[in-house]
Design a protein around this nucleic acid. Structure first.
Lengths: 145, 145
DNA sequence: CTTCCTGCAAAGCATTTGCATCCAT
DNA sequence: ATGGATGCAAATGCTTTGCAGGAAG
């Protein structure tokens, strides 16, 4: 459930990014904060309507997620190949570790690949500006079963 | 242009993966081999029809690319976010360096991140089975202009 | 021959957009 | 008040699928 405290926090987050905190945006972000894994726009929309009694429209979910991605409030992942998934992530540079069985996502903080990446890019005359790493594996729980 | 030698080479590649070398598949793979960068199914289809006089259907392009991806003959990339791009790549493990201005793609061979990745995964109880790194940057040509 | 492949057109689906209405400031 | 945001439905565009005819072994 969404508590008043959570709503306030989410509202502040939106304000701090210059995004007007409308009811729908606050609802969406609060719901996203409670998702343990990444979700598609469609699944988040269904959850909002069916489990949270929101009357938000699908188009608004898309518009809001797109806006939040631009403001770097959420990360957009594409590891399932066909559809885009969203996730509320830490603000610092990090990578994702995804379980290939249960799709659980864990954040890998403390990336120290910058030097390696810069070197590899320089070999080809490139100046590296960003990098994205995704690690696929099996989590302990799935490996045990 | 596609030479007879190229066609033979492409045909052998298909045979070696147990894929029946039909005319369309050979045409497609020969065309892909000449693409310097990654292409979408749509753009490859247009090029086949308009610049190579092929009468291949769009559905066949999708079907063939999908088949070749399963056989690991081509790599599927999603760096533009919305559409899937394909590319004929080296067979060994490698990563991609993409110019954010001109979208040129260079392969980064000799990845020695396995140890780093395995360690990072182990911290979270995961067993790493694969990893994908994409480096975004600016190529020398674009940086100069 | 027989099986798999292809082209075409139609269908499917995620995402975007137009527009009248509504809400936050 | 008033400009931006929303909901709905229609449109868009990539990708897949059904099916009759065609090619490969």
């Amino acid at each position: 459930m969404t508590t008043a405290a959570q709503e306030t926090q989410v509202t502040e987050l939106l304000r701090s990014r210059g995004v007007r905190p409308t009811r729908q945006r606050v609802e969406l972000l609060a719901a996203l904060a409670e998702e343990p894994n990444d979700v598609t726009a469609q699944s988040l929309w269904r959850r909002l309507r069916e489990e949270r009694g929101s009357s938000v429209g699908l188009a608004t979910v898309y518009r809001t997620l797109s806006l939040l991605r631009e403001q770097e409030v959420v990360d957009a992942l594409t590891h399932h190949g066909d559809e885009v998934c969203y996730r509320l992530c830490s603000e610092s540079h990090h990578h994702h570790l995804v379980c290939r069985r249960c799709h659980r996502v864990v954040e890998l903080d403390g990336c120290d690949l910058d030097a390696w990446v810069a070197d590899a890019a320089a070999v080809h005359g490139f100046t590296a500006t960003a990098h994205h790493l995704e690690v696929e594996g099996e989590c302990a729980r799935c490996a045990a079963s």
